[in-house]
Computed example of a mutant assay.
Amino acid sequence: MSSTTKALELLAHFSALKPEIGLSEMCRLAKRDKATTYRHLMALEAAGFVEQNHKTKGYRLGPALLQLGRLREQTVPRETGAAAPMSALSELSGETVHVTVLSSSTIFALLSQESPKHSTRAVIDIATFPLHATASGICALAFGPDDLFAIACEDLAPFTPTTPTTADGLRILVEDARSRGIARSNGQFETDIHSLSSPIFDQDGAFAGAVSVASVATRFTASLEQIITEGLIQASRDITRNWGGIIPQDIETAWSKAIASCKEMEQTS
């Protein structure tokens, strides 16, 4: 991994809940020594990607990212294309909906919307999503580049007692996602949250990201799963179309089987 890549990876640690990070904390988050982390921060600061708050000595995202963000949305309008389908799915399901994008081997948060239907709901407060523990990550492993699985297996950190910590355990979740066209995380990242995730494809026909619904586990019934599954599929189609892509036929076939399975479960519950 190049020094440039390692420096840019530091940007992923910033979030709305953690807009400013000191050097010592960044060392801990990045799992790097102080000298290396400082050198990478200096490189990012020189490029305008981060800036230092001279009062607190902490680092925050820099102004250069504003220009890049605006240019990205103008040329590849991902947020615009995802907003309406995401909002419709949140209203339909009554749960929290979020859209993620894949960049290299990292799943980044793009948009999220909480439903006002329930006072207790899932909150999306992370900027990047673990490949092995979240529905978005498992979706990427199932439908994204082949080398992602090996990358995911390099860090199978346990978030809950049900987080897969072996390659075989993770492979089971990935194969289930491929068979259904829908990935799931039943408490693998947060014990009280069940999530379903459906793939989004770009104009090149490649996996570009995922749309997901995160539900409080106590509300996750067979009936709600059917509603979410059907809503996710429609949202995936809509966002994929808005991003200039086409849903592969094998995904459409898997979705048909997933809907049939949900209806069968709902009838027998």
Rank of each mutant, 00 (worst) to 15 (best):
residue 11 L to A: 09
residue 10 L to W: 05
residue 62 G to M: 07
residue 46 A to D: 10
residue 231 G to I: 08
residue 264 E to S: 15
residue 223 S to D: 10
residue 256 S to W: 03
residue 80 T to K: 10
residue 136 S to D: 03
residue 267 Q to C: 15
residue 196 L to H: 12
residue 250 D to G: 07
residue 164 P to Y: 09
residue 102 L to Q: 04
residue 141 L to N: 07
residue 249 Q to P: 01
residue 166 T to H: 07
residue 177 A to R: 02
residue 222 A to E: 08
residue 156 L to W: 03
residue 264 E to G: 13
residue 198 S to T: 13
residue 48 G to K: 03
residue 229 T to V: 15
residue 189 F to S: 10
residue 105 S to I: 01
residue 178 R to G: 13
residue 153 C to L: 05
residue 245 G to C: 02
residue 215 S to W: 01
residue 11 L to Q: 05
residue 34 K to F: 05
residue 209 G to T: 02
residue 49 F to S: 06
residue 101 V to A: 11
residue 170 L to H: 02
residue 76 V to D: 14
residue 227 I to E: 06
residue 113 Q to G: 08
residue 252 E to V: 07
residue 32 R to T: 07
residue 39 R to K: 14
residue 165 T to L: 00
residue 25 E to A: 00
residue 89 L to A: 09
residue 69 G to D: 10
residue 83 A to T: 12
residue 255 W to K: 02
residue 88 A to K: 08
residue 222 A to G: 04
residue 259 I to T: 14
residue 91 E to T: 09
residue 36 T to C: 12
residue 119 S to L: 13
residue 41 L to K: 00
residue 150 A to T: 02
residue 158 P to K: 00
residue 80 T to C: 11
residue 213 V to F: 03
residue 47 A to M: 12
residue 44 L to Q: 04
residue 207 F to L: 12
residue 171 R to P: 02
residue 56 T to M: 10
residue 27 C to Y: 06
residue 169 G to T: 01
residue 156 L to F: 08
residue 50 V to M: 11
residue 199 P to C: 11
residue 14 F to A: 09
residue 172 I to C: 08
residue 237 R to E: 02
residue 209 G to I: 01
residue 214 A to D: 11
residue 162 T to P: 00
residue 49 F to P: 06
residue 39 R to V: 01
residue 124 I to P: 01
residue 110 L to A: 04
residue 114 E to C: 07
residue 139 C to Q: 07
residue 269 S to W: 10
residue 116 P to S: 00
residue 256 S to K: 07
residue 74 Q to V: 08
residue 49 F to G: 05
residue 172 I to M: 11
residue 85 P to T: 04
residue 188 Q to A: 14
residue 5 T to V: 14
residue 140 A to H: 00
residue 230 E to T: 14
residue 70 R to T: 15
residue 102 L to D: 04
residue 206 A to T: 11
residue 153 C to K: 06
residue 215 S to K: 00
residue 220 F to A: 14
residue 177 A to Q: 02
residue 222 A to V: 05
residue 212 S to L: 04
residue 33 D to W: 06
residue 247 I to K: 00
residue 39 R to E: 05
residue 147 D to S: 03
residue 138 I to V: 13
residue 84 A to H: 10
residue 158 P to D: 00
residue 148 L to Q: 08
residue 48 G to L: 11
residue 116 P to Y: 03
residue 194 H to N: 15
residue 183 A to I: 04
residue 201 F to E: 15
residue 177 A to I: 09
residue 67 Q to M: 14
residue 204 D to G: 14
residue 65 L to G: 06
residue 242 N to F: 06
residue 161 P to W: 01
residue 40 H to W: 02
residue 130 P to G: 11
residue 252 E to C: 12
residue 64 A to F: 14
residue 192 D to G: 14
residue 45 E to V: 02
residue 14 F to Y: 13
residue 81 G to M: 11
